[in-house]
């Protein structure tokens, strides 16, 4: 029998160290936060840019779930079975969440200790994570070289023939109808509901499909089910890159904010807020914008963006100038009644 050599000892020590490292990382990994977002191809980018580095740095695991659903949030709060530590929220849902006490107050000393975020992004129960727009998208190969320019053109089925696609919701569609009818963008609210539905009557026959999800918006255009329809601005650039004949119009788009919020009863609110802080890194923000043109208000972000990329962002000054600013307060208040009227209108 040979004696234990120095090399063996070395191996042992290495093994021990590795084991110890495994143990400590396992202990740190004990906390895993569940982050609920919109899923899709974006989830992969988020994992690469934010979630993995965050786990490597803090030892806090991140589990991503989808989709964003205020109904699920309500169910989880009311049954006391909160699965999420952090969730994405739309503007009107955010107001609903605050009104119904479904959310936890943000501890800004964790998320933004140096107070660098603009006030619009720092709210009591949520942080603005991104901006996005609902805009018109159209098939560039279907109108003989002509391009629609406005909501009036969307309604003009003589000059731009072919089926349309709209969201199955009164939200924004009423605004779009009023814009098509000539109401100025800054005079939309409170909405003239009668006038909007009357205008919608004119286009109803030409709407071949009423979408409910982001994936459907572009599917309808690519399949030719519709030649013009509404989409979220970020859905189109990847299609253009693939060479698909689609483009968007910023004119008359609905500029909206989306939020991060910590649900009431979340199991790891502090860890969730640390993750929120990691989402404010401008360098990572620039990386994310390559995959998803939905910029937030991370300080220093816009200065770092390539000017070519900036042109396809909803908050580029040229794009802001032609859009209207979506009013979530109005919709939080009127959505149930108007949704019911919308559903009845669709049946008639």
């Amino acid at each position: 029998m040979t004696a234990v050599t120095r090399r063996d000892m070395g191996r042992l020590a290495l093994g021990g160290a590795a084991l110890a490292a495994l143990c400590t990382s396992a202990r740190a990994q004990a906390v895993t936060i569940t982050v609920n977002g919109s899923g899709g191809s974006l989830a992969k980018s988020l994992e690469r840019i934010y979630e993995k580095p965050f786990t490597a740095e803090t030892g806090i695991g991140v589990r991503a779930t989808a989709p964003v659903s205020v109904a699920k949030l309500k169910a989880m709060v009311e049954t006391g079975n909160m699965e999420w530590d952090l969730t994405e929220m739309g503007g009107a849902d955010m107001i609903e969440g605050v009104k119904n006490n479904w959310l936890t107050e943000i501890d800004w000393s964790i998320v933004d200790p140096d107070n660098k975020l603009p006030p619009i992004a720092r709210q009591k129960y949520g942080m603005v994570t991104s901006t996005f727009s609902t805009v018109i998208a159209y098939r560039t190969d279907k109108f003989g070289g002509k391009a629609p320019k406005s909501w009036a053109d969307f309604w003009d089925v003589k000059s731009f023939p072919g089926p349309r696609a709209l969201q199955d919701s009164p939200v924004q569609n009423l605004e779009f109808a009023l814009l098509a009818d000539g109401v100025p963008a800054d005079k939309l609210y409170p909405l003239d509901v009668e006038r909007a539905f009357k205008k919608l009557d004119q286009i109803k026959r030409n709407v071949a499909a009423w979408w409910t999800t982001g994936a459907q918006q572009v599917q309808l255009l690519v399949d030719g089910e519709a030649v013009m329809g509404t989409v979220w601005n970020g859905r189109v650039p990847p299609l253009k890159k693939e060479g698909k004949p689609v483009d968007i119009i910023w004119n008359g788009g609905a500029l909206q904010l989306s939020y991060w919020a910590v649900p009431r009863g979340a199991k790891h609110p502090k860890e969730a807020m640390r993750y929120m802080k990691s989402r404010l890194d401008p360098d990572k923000g620039v990386q994310l914008l390559q995959d998803s043109p939905y910029p937030g208000f991370a300080p220093g972000l816009i200065e770092k963006v390539d000017p070519e990329l900036a042109k396809i962002l909803p908050i580029h000054p040229d794009n802001v100038a032609v859009q209207y600013s979506f009013n979530p307060e109005y919709w939080s208040e009127h959505r149930p009644k108007l949704t019911e009227r919308w559903a009845a209108w669709l049946l008639s």
Binding site: V70, E96, D168, S169, R335, P336, A343, L346, L347
Partner: peptide, 18 residues
């Protein structure tokens, strides 16, 4: 949505009208 059934309407109530 132009051919909603009761099941679809329940879904709409839960998810859109809360």
């Amino acid at each position: 949505p132009r051919h909603r059934t009761i099941a679809n309407l329940i879904d709409l109530q839960v998810h859109q009208m809360n």
